[in-house]
Design a protein around this nucleic acid. Sequence first.
RNA 1: GCGCCUGUAGCUCAUUUGGAUAGAGCAUCGGAUUUCUAAUCCGAGGGUAGUAGGUUCGAGUCCUACCAGGCGUGCCA
Length: 570
Amino acid sequence: MKKIIKDLIKDSLNKNFKDNDIPLNDIEVNLCKDKKFGDYSSNIAMKIASSFNEKPTVFAEKLVERLKKNSKIKKVEIVKPGFINFFVSEDLKFSVIDKILKEKRNYGKNSTGNNLKVLIEFVSANPTGPLHVGHGRGAVFGDCLSNMLTESGYAVTKEYYVNDAGKQIDILVVSVLQRYHELIDSDFEFSYDDLYKGDYIWDIAAELHRNEGSKFLIKNLVDHNNADIDLYIRKIKEILSDREFLYIKKLCVNYVLENIRLNLVEANINFDSWFFESSLLEDKSLDKAVEFLIKNNHTYTKDKALWFKSTDFNDEKDRVLIKENQDHTYLATDIAYHEKKIGRKYDLNVNIWGADHHGYVPRIQGAFQIFSKKKSNLKILLVQFANLYRGTEKVAMSTRSGEFVTLNQLLKEVGKDAMRFFYLTRKSDQHMDFDIELAKSNNNNNPVYYVQYAHARICSIFRQLKKGKNNFSYDKKYLLNLREEEELNIINKLASYPDVILNAAKKYEPHLITNYVRELAQEIHSYYNKHQILVENGDLRNARLALIEAAKYVLQNSAKIIGIEMPEEM
RNA sequence: GCGCCUGUAGCUCAUUUGGAUAGAGCAUCGGAUUUCUAAUCCGAGGGUAGUAGGUUCGAGUCCUACCAGGCGUGCCA
């Protein structure tokens, strides 16, 4: 829709103002909030009149005079201080319904992505425990963003980066080993400062015991009792063989990761790819990446540690890659991981991180730039935290106390649809409050049901139709019967859908879609309440059925992007 | 201290790359169903957009300062 008008303006500018270098992408066309200003407006005259030494209104006059006659546009008006307002012909408006009924599930798709390869990395939570609600927002955001970009013609790969090689995993292994010993001999009593103490640790220990019996019993394993955790880990590694330790580690990671994967599937999030940090060590990518940095003078040695000169890339200070004890930091493997990404030749890389990692951005962007040797095509999106509430009461969340609400608990309590919708109603860079009570309420407070109900009502009308003796038959000419204000409102809304998708994908803002679908539902409910669809007059009835059928497709299409169901009845 | 993010109705949030009269939901109050599902609709009240300046045809949106909150600022991950 917008494009048609844009093209018209472009055409006029090109023909009549040849000696200009107006970037044609700058032509802006917007939906009018107020009907009296028409359907669409452009501010182009106000923007560029000054460069022609003319008043915006005068310039607009000239521009409009020379607009090519077009049957799609009914009327063009100029309003001070220089808006050009377009009134679209009924015929063109109605054609949207025709288009939707033809395209069905494809309505709203666009090809701006041009089949470019995009890698979206998100969640990537350490496999040391179950996902909690803090991960939920980023997870749902990333998934919806993937859907949006797919809808816009990108070839999207969703990837989870698994940190299965660092110290945290060793701590997980040690935690499990201690529980394993307690399981075998109840006389054991360990302290768990700095270790993981969630119930799932027992489960993994039990699994280990189920599979291997008492094979890994360490006779003289003593409580680490606040001893340095690194020393404790090293000691256990000395007692067990490398193979044994690796075996237990794999078992732990697999257990936790499978749990995470299942949680995500329940939330309707499916990853295409799981990238393991450990693979960077196995295939020497880490060493190669570090060597490359050294060779190209991006590092220096200080205090027996190897530092990355991240200050060259607007970081506040330089960062350690290899510690004094010769262990690598997470930054080192992260850099190696991103080096790998470049080698995988994606046209665009998107990382979705929690906002608490924002300090990490310059480092990774810097490293990425070094390895890609050209303009960075890495986009790092930060998702703010969500505070969890039960009614007015804030739910405390701390990993320390082990008192965090898991994503799975949230899923069970509020359901997949409500959870996803809620997470997506706010702009991602905005802090948000997530009220569990509200999300699971079965009433009009809940926007998910509001939207789903609109769909169910439409379905219900078609069921009702089947019961009667009439059928729905469609012909474009029936549409001329749509004269009610509410009908035109819905048509306008339906017409703007592709622009919403386009815009949301361009700005990486899924909330535009949840907002849209809520607005559409509102128009549908208003219409439903005021007007009967199944009227006696056959032509009118068919026109109205065509309208709500089209609305149904748009509801379904947006629901698919949001990742929620659209039930036929409620 | 420094850096990043945020501040819009009583509450939770929108406001389409700066546009026309800043909009929804919740809550409050008043109405609507013999009719396709009332998980719905219609209406009312409610605003110095944190504060103060600046930029321009035009600012909630951009810039500066200050105030308030969140996060970051490890040889942690």
